[in-house]
């Protein structure tokens, strides 16, 4: 009986993380890890392991929807996954070392810092004007970084060129490290790499990031599994919850065009970031 209640609680926790992750645009993992650690007192390495599994699940389901809408640029995503997978492996190995030396506070501080840094550009993006196409550079041609999609909101076909591939790749390596170190999808950082670095339209950056996250997280997950940081029985209800929550969150986003909800949750996550840092330095 108690076990069943605990399972339901984990399911509910996952759903909340999924909804807030979708509404803020930052993903379920960055919501899930703080809830599990700060509220439930789960050791952060297990929270991160659970979050990685949930991240793969949401990426796979969101990824398939965006491919159908032709928003995802599979070439750009794949070329950047070279850096994210190498980064993820490096990040997971560093995490293994940190936990082996019993320094989980470092992870709390890094988590808070990364969450805070992802919150700022996500808020900025809400107030941005229309997309302007960049002139192709040498990497556009070499790596075939062009594409087009039909924009439902403005009812126009948007043609775009990705530029500065090397910059995208550098940001992705960092995003991969963060993913492996903290057990999150680091979608916000991936979007920065494509949006700011490669000058891709925000919808393409977001869809391609969702598509990439699963592969990045798979590399980290393999190592977390080997380290014993994933406990399948307690992770299962959370994963299902996050999937359901993310689905509901995406539906809510479809019916509300208002940016206010998004801004509200972004601010909430900013506060959560602060709490993670305070926990890391031992104040709370």
């Amino acid at each position: 009986m108690i076990a069943a209640i605990y399972e339901l609680l984990l399911l509910l926790t996952g759903s909340v993380a999924g909804v807030v992750g979708a509404l803020s645009g930052l993903g379920g993992g960055v919501v899930l890890v703080p809830i599990l650690t700060l509220l439930f007192g789960v050791p952060i390495e297990y929270a991160a392991g659970t979050s990685l599994l949930a991240t793969i699940a949401t990426s796979s389901s969101a990824g398939s929807a965006f491919i159908k809408e032709k928003l995802t640029n599979i070439r750009i995503g794949m070329s950047l996954e070279i850096a994210t997978t190498i980064g993820a492996i490096a990040g997971a190995l560093v995490a293994a070392m940190i936990y082996a030396h019993n320094l989980p506070n470092l992870i709390f501080i890094a988590f808070g810092a990364v969450l805070f840094l992802s919150v700022i550009p996500s808020a900025e993006r809400l107030f941005r004007g229309r997309f302007r196409r960049s002139k192709p550079d040498r990497t556009t041609k070499l790596f075939q970084l062009h594409g087009r999609y039909y924009d439902m909101a403005s009812k126009r076909t948007i043609v775009y060129n990705g530029v500065r591939w090397y910059l995208g790749e550098a940001v992705m390596f960092f995003a991969g490290i963060v993913s492996g170190l903290l057990g999150i999808g680091s979608g916000a950082l991936k979007v920065i790499g494509m949006d700011w670095g490669m000058r891709l339209p925000i919808k393409v950056s977001t869809a391609t990031s969702d598509f990439m996250i699963g592969v990045t997280a798979a590399a980290s997950t393999a190592i977390y599994l080997a380290l014993g940081f994933i406990q399948p029985v307690s992770a299962a209800p959370v994963v299902i919850g996050v999937l359901v929550g993310a689905f509901a969150g995406a539906k809510i986003m479809e019916i509300t065009t208002s940016n206010r909800i998004r801004l509200f949750f972004i601010i909430v996550l900013g506060l959560v970031a602060l709490e993670m840092v305070l926990r890391g330095i031992g104040v709370i």
């Binding site: 793969i56 699963g214 798979a218 399948p232 992770a235 299962a236």
Partner: peptide
């Protein structure tokens, strides 16, 4: 449950 985890992990690899 283990099979579920393995399927989840295998999906991006298959992709």
């Amino acid at each position: 449950i283990s099979a579920g985890v393995i399927f989840l992990l295998a999906t991006p690899v298959l992709r």
